[in-house]
């Protein structure tokens, strides 16, 4: 295998990986502020793609349609937290997680009725042949995917590290009670983190649709991949989610390169399980004892 070919495998892996990373980031944000896994995260990804197609068909130019889809999905995320989860927020994580599963089914069913059962497509963001890098081809849409993912990650990191709201989010992830005692509106932090998670998922759905098409039932599969990415990187750690998502994509692509495409999903799951045994906190996660 020559180096151009190896690079091509890496590019393929990073392409899927950047999408896993966006979804993983959504899982991570919600986990960080609430301690629960939001199983509707994949549905936000689906909504991003479906709404972009819907808005574009309604006559909006592509960028406007994409931004509208991300904003609307973000609002759906806010509403999801406000009306489904907040009423039961004292009920314990298990109940809340089950509510997210129920919510994901409702979103999926409604999307099917609103947009139909067929696959829908978007045009590429910019046309033209693939860019050649050291003998490997990179399609233009992949550049968009990486660029927008990087932008989202950087923006989120800045918010997290530099702003008042970011500090509130970090405080919530350590202890809700302590944060509340310090005068932080924890309910608002939780709601906004759902909105942000939904918007990140929607961004993923929007940038990937030109490559893969989309339909009402794509959410569950991508949700699973994003969840695996978040676990791999360390739940609750935004940078970990990104690293985990990219690592999962690379892992799948390298399994195809060196072992077999038939077992790529199985191989990633085995690595994930091994990871949980050896380093349960994930690649970049803190061991929980540090929190004490």
């Amino acid at each position: 295998m020559d180096s151009a070919e190896l690079l091509q495998f890496a590019i393929a892996g990073l392409k899927s990986g950047s999408i896993y990373a966006l979804v993983a980031l959504g899982f991570s944000l919600v986990y960080g502020s609430t301690g629960i896994i939001n199983f509707a995260q994949g549905e936000f990804f689906m909504l991003g793609g479906m709404l972009s197609v819907f808005f574009r068909d309604a006559g909006m130019p592509l960028p406007v349609a994409g931004v509208s889809a991300i904003v609307v999905t973000g609002l759906v995320g806010l509403a999801f937290e406000r009306f489904l989860l907040r009423p039961r927020r004292d009920a314990g994580p298990l109940v809340l997680i089950i509510i997210t599963i129920g919510g994901s089914m409702v979103i999926k069913s409604l999307a099917r009725h609103a947009f139909g059962g067929n696959e829908l497509s978007l045009p590429m963001f910019s046309s033209g042949a693939s860019v050649m890098v050291a003998g490997a081809a990179v399609e233009r849409q992949a550049l968009w995917m990486w660029g927008l993912t990087a932008l989202a990650v950087v923006a989120l990191t800045v918010v997290h590290a530099r702003t008042r709201f970011g500090r509130a989010m970090r405080a919530c992830s350590l202890s809700h009670d302590a944060a509340r005692l310090m005068g932080i509106d924890t309910a608002k932090v939780v709601m906004v983190s759902f909105g942000l998670a939904a918007a990140l998922g929607a961004l993923g759905g929007f940038v990937v649709t030109p490559l893969t098409q989309t339909s009402f039932d794509v959410g569950a599969r991508i949700g699973l991949k994003g969840f695996a990415g978040a676990i791999l990187g360390g739940l609750g750690n935004p940078l970990g989610a990104v690293v985990g998502g990219l690592a999962l994509g690379l892992l799948e692509s390298l399994s195809i390169a060196f072992i077999s495409s038939t077992y790529k999903d199985a191989i990633s799951l085995v690595v994930l399980l091994a990871m949980l045994f050896i380093r349960p906190q994930g690649l970049l996660g803190r061991a929980s004892r540090e929190k004490v």
């Binding site: 091509q8 495998f9 590019i11 393929a12 899927s16 490559l211 893969t212 692509s253 495409s261």
Partner: peptide
């Protein structure tokens, strides 16, 4: 959603 790895092989 992506078969570039298989096709590269």
């Amino acid at each position: 959603t992506d078969m570039t790895a298989q096709l590269t092989k």
